[in-house]
Design a protein around this nucleic acid. Structure first.
Lengths: 200, 200
DNA sequence: GGCATTTTGTATCAATGACTACAAATAAAG
DNA sequence: CTTTATTTGTAGTCATTGATACAAAATGCC
């Protein structure tokens, strides 16, 4: 596992890039992309700018790594929530509830790293976040379309919009209880649009 | 109307502050607070920095003026939508529909100036936006509480969250149709929570 | 005309942003 | 030991940020 390859050649790295990505993920999530400077990052990582740029290319490059890591550590686990055996409305409700819980779980990193990233002022980072968000939206859309094709677009938009709102309000300091109440209320609209009878 | 007061004393202004606020409002709404620099503003206004700071104190000061103007020109007209003669659920649905329409009305200034402002990186501007948003939330909360006190908190949170989502997605380029569909779906949850029978 | 008052234009300021040039350091390969 | 390859630390670069110092210009008041 830890024996990957023989040492490359030159001087060995003085830091662990994967751990650096994890640290960067925390920082970006806590303060937002724009509010984290390269100086903040190099200080938090205990390295100097040249090491930073040699390893990650740019601030946006590191952000892309952090977003990639986020999918496996911190984001909503869509694959396990969107279960083909469960009614669609129930699955979507589970996603919204998970969003509320995850966005409020850590007050120092509230909301969704990706959704908040789509609002930043760096074009490269914004595109990274947008691509990740689009991928998640596609997953939801395909899940709905499999059983309710005529409702897929509308409900996907509704899910995306609701999650964006939940992320924003989580960053405004809304408590878990308030976010959960909103998520559940939002789920009722979905249940109404997808009568249980049409579960398959 | 235009004859306000006798000329003050010294050298007359070379620009109209009210028109400058209107221009600034457009710029802030189009690009967001952080992405508009003082240099952008002074250029758009055709003035130099000293005139800018003499008139508005700071970038955040001008933003406060722009937000104040927004309430009367661009924002959702809550006072006329929250009509005490109409059922609460119907009024709230009208607010969400207005949000969708207004947020998508101008593609060059999508979303809500205030809601997006609450996400900026300048503490002073953020506090200005937050105060304005809180005032709007209070208006909604009192309107609901007048007839459905036990639902006021939950529905106000739901409204705020939904509008934040609509604003974010409007900035993502969602069309009016998509935003309207989401707003209407969201309204169904409200209608369900406030049975028509309890209209008074 | 002369004085007080206010705004304007020129020319900055200090701080911070992302990013790099360059040589010393550290390793494997020959 | 020499060569080659890679990373490191020092010390910057250059553009941009929000905000100002200062004197000239333009008005009302006396």
């Amino acid at each position: 596992m830890t024996t990957n390859k023989a040492r490359p050649r030159g001087r060995p790295r003085g830091f662990d890039p994967d751990q650096a990505v994890a640290t960067a993920q925390r920082l970006f999530h806590a303060r937002g992309y724009d509010a984290v400077s390269v100086a903040d990052l190099t200080e938090a990582l205990g390295i100097n700018p040249p090491s930073f740029y040699a390893a990650f290319g740019s601030k946006a490059g590191l952000y892309a790594r952090a977003v990639g890591r986020y999918a496996n550590a911190g984001a909503i686990p869509l694959p396990e929530l969107l279960c083909p055996n469960r009614p669609v409305a129930e699955s979507l409700a589970a996603v919204l509830e998970a969003a509320a819980r995850i966005y409020a779980a850590n007050p120092d990193a509230a909301g969704c790293l990706v959704l908040e990233g789509t609002r930043c002022n760096d074009p490269a980072a914004r595109e990274t976040a947008r691509a990740s968000n689009d991928a998640a939206a596609d997953t939801i859309r395909r899940f709905i379309a499999a059983r309710h094709p005529e409702e897929a677009e509308r409900l996907t938009d509704y899910m995306n919009t609701t999650m964006a709102g939940l992320s924003a309000k989580a960053r405004d300091g809304y408590s878990l209880d308030r976010l959960l109440a909103t998520a559940r209320l939002a789920s009722q609209a979905i249940a109404q649009a997808l009568p249980a009878s049409a579960s398959r």
